[in-house]
Design a protein around this nucleic acid. Sequence first.
RNA 1: GUCUCCUUCGUCUAGUGGUUAGGACACCGGGUUUUCAUCCCGGCAGCAGGGGUUCGACUCCCCUAGGAGAUGCCA
Length: 491
Amino acid sequence: MTVRVRFAPSPTGKMHIGNLRNAFFDYFYARATGGKFLLRIEDTDQGRSTEGSIQNIYDTLRWLGLSWDEGPDVGGPFGPYVQSERNAVYGDYAAKLVSAGHAYRCYCSPERLEAVRKEQTEKKLPVIGYDRHCRDLTETQRAEYDEQGLKPVIRLRIPLESVTVFRDEILGDIEKANIDINPDPVLLKSDGFPTYHLANVIDDHLMEITHVIRSQEWLSSGPIHLHLYQAFGWEPPKYYHPPLILGKDGHKLAKRHGSTTLDEFREKGYLPEAIVNYVTLLGWSYDDTREFFSREEFEKLFTLDKLSKSSAVFDYKKLDWFNGQYMRKLEPADLRDRLVPFMQQAGLFASPPTEAERKTLLDIVPLIRERLTLLSDCASWTSFFFEDVSIADPAELVPKKGTPEKTLETLTALNTSLAGFEGKSEEELESDFKALAEKLGVKLGDLLMPLRVALTGTTKSPPLMGSMLILGKDKVEARLSAAIALLGEKV
RNA sequence: GUCUCCUUCGUCUAGUGGUUAGGACACCGGGUUUUCAUCCCGGCAGCAGGGGUUCGACUCCCCUAGGAGAUGCCA
C-alpha cells in the first residue's frame, strides 16, 4: 500500500511554526517512502476563514521548497481539496449515520448549552459538556421542534459504557472510558457545515489517507474519530500525534513569544534552509550527533519512528545559529542575490538594483559573511560603501588610550602614505600599515582604528584593507581628509 | 473540577538493564585576529522525587509532584 499523507491547515491566518513542523513531517514522510503528499484546506468554519490565508499557505510552503502531489491548485483524483466545496458529501454521510442510529439531531440552542456548562462548572461536576438532552428524543418531540423551525445539529452517539482503546503510533495504546469522551460531539452544524471531526474523518477516508500526523492537541479527539470510523464501517488510518512546540514559558508557542509566522521569519532574513533544518529537528532526531540536514536529505532519511513524545521549546538563539551556519555555506553569488532585497529594503540599493550595486555587493560578501546572523544584518555592515559617512563626534576617531593630537598626527601620516594603495593586495597593505605603525611608534590597532572610523563611521566594520580596496581611492582620500579636518578643529 | 499525555544539562536531543550518561545551542574561560565576528581549545551543567522488580536501573512497574493538552455548532 502506498503511503498517502496530507497537510490539512485551516485558512484562519498566516502559516506559523507549529503548523509548519507537522507539514514537514508529512511531506518528508511522503517523500522518504515514495508516497503522496496532499494539501487539503479545512475551511469548515465560515466565521474564521480569512482572505489570503490559502495563498499564504501556498507561498510559505513553496518558499521552503515543499511541493504537493494533490491539492486545490494542482488538482488530483480525489478532489475537490477544499472542504467548503465538499459540503454535499458531508451532509449525505451525516444523514446516513442518523438513519443508522449512530447519530441524532439535537435542537438545543447555543444559549442552553452555555447555561448547562455554566451550571456544571459552578457545581464542579466531573463531566462538563453537553448533557445529551436530545439523545433520545421521541418522534413527536422531534416533529414539534421541526415545526417550530428549529435548525438542528447532528451529534454522534457515543456509547455510555465500556472503554475505547485508541492507538497512537508514537504514544502507544491510550485507553479512554467512553463516558469520559467529549459527550456526543457535533458532526454537522446548524449552518450545514461539518465540524472538524466529521469532515476530517470522511475526507481522510475518501482520500485514502494512510497516516495521519497531527499535533498532540488532537489527541483527545482520537477516540471520537475512532467511533466515527466504526460507525461508518471504515478502517482508520495510523495516527501519529507529535508533541507541541512551546515558547520559553512552557506554553504553546504564540505571538507573545516572538515571531511565529513564517512571513515574519522571512522578513527578518532567515533562510529557508535554516528553518527547514531547525524546525524539523524539533521533535525529530536522526542520531546522537548529526544535526545538519538539507531538505533533500530529510526527503531521504525521515522516519516516523524517531518522533519524540515530549514537547519542545522553540529556541530562537539556536535558529539564529543555524541561520549563520547556512549563510556561510552559500555560494557568494547566491548569498549576494538573497541579500539584495534587504539592501533595497534598507534604501541602500535601487529597485531594481544596478549592475554596479550587484557587483560591489558580490565583492563585499567575503568580507561580511561570517559577521551575519540574518540577511537583514547586511545593511548596517555595508551602508558605508553606498552612502556618505558622518562622524558625530571627533572623539570617536581617537583610540581608547590615545590623544587627539597623536591621532591627528597618525591620520595625517596615513593620508600621505596611502597614495597608490589601490594597486596593492590586502597583504601588501597590511605590511605597509605595520611598517607605518612602527615608524610612528603606535600599535597597529591604534593606527587602524582612527582610519576605520574615518572610512566607515563606526568602530565595528568589515576588515579594513578589503573594505578600502572596494571603496576606492577617491572615497578613501575624501573621507580621510574630512576626518583630519574634523579632528583638526578640535585640537 | 474531570480526563488524557508528557518528564535526561537553562534549551534541543542521543540513550530501549551493566556507558566515566554522548552531541549541539546558550553561557563562562583561553587562543587566533586590524575592530566586530568567524574559527579553534577548554569548562560549567542533567536522568523531577519516593517506593518497588533485579546481581545490577536513566532504562521495567507503582505512587507523588510538576508541566501541557482537551473538556466549543474552533480547528
